[in-house]
Amino acid sequence: MNGKDEQISALFKRTLFFENPVVIQILGICSALAVTNRLINTAIMAIGLTLVTALSSLTISAIRNLIPRRIRMMVQVLVIASYVIVFDLILKAYLPAISAALGPYVGLIITNCIIMGRAEAYAQSHPPLSAFLDGLGSGLGYSMVLMIVAFVRELLGFGTLFGVKVTPESFVNWTIMIMAPSAFFVLSIVLWIFKSFRTGTK
């Protein structure tokens, strides 16, 4: 039991930090740029991606011995796309405002390299539980970076956090922070900090 716990903590350290999908592997950047101007949208997006990654890793790992090699990729996309559509439908039904704000980016989770990458690199060759945790960890790694970026962007761009005004009345909103280009600035700084910490600890 003890050995297994250690394994899990090592796994999360890896997915969140040393092999963080966004800042280390530079995957999933498109959505990181597009949805990070408000924390609430980002949080929903992050939850969606984490769930989809974890569940599709779990599913693919569970049937990994049954999948013929030749159509491996097709099956992966089928699984991922199905979960994304389910998530999209649920959003549309229960959180229509956020669904509208996220626009096409929920559907585009299908093409997010993180999920496909975890399915191909990990879930194909590991048992379901580990695959699930690996997917969960990668999703959380993605979520963490997005939330940091969104925190900075919403704070400077709207003067709010989760829609709650936190800045003084005289605060001037930084319009560029609301627009996609600013994500390049913020993300690159986050990336820099992560990398220098990583080289520092290694």
């Binding site: 013929p68 090699r69 099956v75």
Partner: peptide, 14 residues
């Protein structure tokens, strides 16, 4: 597992 029939069948079922 690599036979065409299995592949088609698997794809169909999944």
């Amino acid at each position: 597992k690599d036979s065409p029939l299995y592949t088609i069948l698997f794809a169909f079922i999944i």
